[in-house]
């Protein structure tokens, strides 16, 4: 019943249908389309024969090549580990001193350490270990927990205030909030702490003296008698110019009034011993290069 007409432009017939002015040509499917379809179907058939492809109830066709992603990834991983074995074994066996003296090993520590550090540590400690508010710089030579390789290794292993049974614990008490000291005394100790790093400008000498007394009573047990810090407790040196939380009056006041409890994750269950060794040496090296 539908009668086609010839389209003057292409010379093809229409199908004779007309919908709201739309017509369709009866052009045959172009050859390339069919060829292309055949090619992709043949490709798929071949691929199905070679690779794991179709389910068979509880199993599946394994493919002639016997490839499976699980085994592929396992072989690749062990090959990669093999390729690294020449230096990773040396790193595992030698102690920090020996490695530090070996230039080839230190070259590996530097470039693989940089990626490890970027992926695991830089979010908190900064790209180059320069630190930021709340996160200590690792390059300033002023260490909370000691700067020897063994100290750093231990900090990495157990973390600080971390989820590890042996974690290091660092707790700066909330002297003001918990009512251990009144507000005025807190303010006095702030003045004293400021004076410790030589920032005497604008400080009331009486307040500093009062603060010194309060410090001896309340703070020196952790921060040391002269405020030089104590690496066994992670109490920072208050006499230098390096601050975790900031050295201005307000930041120091916040530290003393509300307390501080920095969190450094433990890495024992997350990074291998070799990786932690690399990082330990890398962190020390960062500091040396920065100075």
């Amino acid at each position: 019943m539908s009668v086609g007409e010839r389209d003057p432009h292409t010379g093809h017939m229409t199908t004779g249908h007309d919908w709201n002015g739309i017509k369709e040509l009866n052009t045959p499917v172009p050859k390339p389309v069919l060829l292309f379809l055949a090619a992709t179907v043949i490709f798929s058939l071949v691929y199905w024969v070679l690779m794991p492809a179709w389910p068979l109830g509880v199993s599946y066709t394994k493919g002639l090549l016997g490839i499976d992603q699980r085994t592929t990834v396992e072989t690749r991983l062990s090959e990669a580990a093999q390729a690294r074995a020449n230096w990773s074994e040396a790193l595992a066996e030698q102690d920090f001193g020996q490695i530090a003296e070996d230039d080839t090993l230190m070259a590996i520590v530097r470039h693989s350490g940089s990626t490890l550090f970027g992926d695991n540590c830089a979010v908190c400690h900064g790209d180059r270990g320069e630190g930021g508010p709340g996160y200590p710089a690792l390059t300033d030579g002023s260490w909370l927990w000691g700067g020897e390789a063994d100290d750093i290794w231990e900090t990495l292993r157990v973390g600080v205030n971390a989820e590890h049974s042996e974690t290091r614990i660092a707790e700066m008490l909330a002297f003001g909030r918990d009512g251990i000291l009144d507000r005025q005394t807190v303010l006095d100790t702030v003045s004293y702490v400021q004076s410790l790093s030589g920032a005497m400008d604008g400080l009331d000498p009486d307040a500093v003296t009062r603060g010194e007394e309060a410090f001896a009573m309340n703070c020196s047990a952790c921060h040391g008698e002269s405020g030089q810090g104590d690496a066994t407790m992670g109490a920072p040196d208050l006499t230098d110019d390096f601050w975790i939380y900031g050295g201005d009056r307000n930041a120091i006041y916040q530290s003393i009034f509300h307390g501080r409890r920095g969190h450094m994750p433990q890495w024992e269950t997350r990074l291998s011993p070799v990786e932690r060794k690399i990082l330990t040496l890398y962190v020390r090296d960062l500091g040396e290069q920065a100075r």
Partner: peptide
């Protein structure tokens, strides 16, 4: 996801190109 499911996804995607381009 099992390898064979991935194979099917891939090959059908390749064949899909023909009707899409058509």
């Amino acid at each position: 996801l099992p390898h064979w499911v991935q194979t099917l996804g891939m090959t059908f995607s390749v064949m899909l190109l023909v009707p899409s381009w058509a």
